[in-house]
């Protein structure tokens, strides 16, 4: 960038010098005197400037000689005008061209910077999500081991904490964006999106009714989480909207117990129904069914 600017600057100076010398010379002698004055004015400048002065001086000398040879002295006004206009136009055009390059370069850098940040964020996000999914998978597997059943209470407590932390956030499934780079990113179909569904009350034989993607704060009682839209298995938990909590805590027989095991009495309800262990529902003939073994475990607190 700096090199560009320097070159630009030198070029402009060169052009300007040539233009100003030509434009202001009324006679070769006068021109020479003025050149000398210019030289004396810049003789304390840097080496670059000294070199520049030499180049300018040589050029002026050449031009002066040409002028003399061409006997332009008698037609000095016309020559003076054409040179100035030429130089001026060149400088303007050059400035614009260089400015254009400059701006273009600037925006390109900016864009590259943003992309870099974007890719970085996405990478971190996906990395975290994958890690989280891996953790969940591990925990899920653990839960079904006998050993884990024995140590259930400890793990459940851990899960309560996690569930509570996620609490309000995971009302809707988080969208995972895989748009890093069309050219370099992995094929989209290889990563599946989790789906969240909402179910209303259950039937006596443990079947969810009115399962949909829309949550009705007055009717949706359970949240079903599917690994992807083709999944026929879903984890479920009790929703925590105020209306549903009030409804379910007062009438747990009606709304909860056909698919949930209570860990304590509903009389302990003090504003929360915590899903200690998520239940599992299976899609059979288009209906979400919960077997006895797959009921969620809940706690009123």
């Amino acid at each position: 960038m700096k090199t560009y600017l320097k070159t630009l600057f030198i070029f402009i100076i060169l052009v300007n010098f040539s233009c100003s010398v030509d434009a202001t010379s009324e006679s070769p002698n006068e021109n020479q005197v003025k050149t000398q004055k210019t030289k004396s004015n810049i003789k304390d400048s840097s080496n670059l400037e000294e070199n520049l002065s030499k180049v300018v001086s040589n050029t002026q000398t050449l031009k002066t000689n040409d002028s003399l040879d061409s006997n332009l002295a008698s037609n000095s006004y016309t020559s003076k005008y054409n040179f100035w206009m030429f130089g001026f136009l060149i400088s303007i055009v050059t400035i614009f061209i260089l400015l254009w390059f400059l701006i273009k370069k600037h925006f390109k850098n900016e864009e590259l910077f943003q992309k870099k940040e974007h890719y970085k964020n996405n990478y971190n996000k996906i990395f975290n999500q994958l890690k989280s999914l891996q953790d969940e998978k591990n925990e899920f597997q653990k839960k079904y081991t006998k050993e884990n059943k024995i140590n259930k209470s400890k793990n459940d407590l851990k899960e309560i904490t996690q569930t509570k932390k996620l609490g309000n956030k995971d009302e809707k499934s988080e969208e995972i964006v895989f748009d890093i780079d069309n050219g370099t990113s992995a094929p989209q179909q290889s990563i599946k999106k989790p789906i969240t569904l909402y179910a209303e009350k259950t039937s006596e034989n443990g079947m969810f009714s009115n399962v949909s993607e829309q949550k009705d704060i007055h009717k949706s009682i359970f949240k079903l989480i599917l690994k992807d839209e083709t999944s026929t298995t879903a984890e479920f938990e009790v929703l925590d909207t105020d209306f549903i909590l009030k409804l379910a805590a007062n009438s747990p027989d009606t709304y909860l117990y056909s698919v949930c095991k209570p860990e304590n009495s509903n009389q302990n309800f003090n504003g929360e129904i915590v899903t200690i262990k998520k239940g599992i529902a299976h899609k059979v003939d288009g209906k979400w069914v919960i077997k006895n073994d797959n009921k969620a475990t809940i706690k009123f607190q």
């Binding site: 027989d253 209570p262 009495s265 509903n266 009921k295």
Partner: peptide, 15 residues
């Protein structure tokens, strides 16, 4: 035997 209602009833009575 998944008798949640009765578990609930018994729990409450015990309390």
């Amino acid at each position: 035997n998944e008798q949640n209602v009765l578990i609930e009833a018994a729990t409450r009575i015990k309390e």
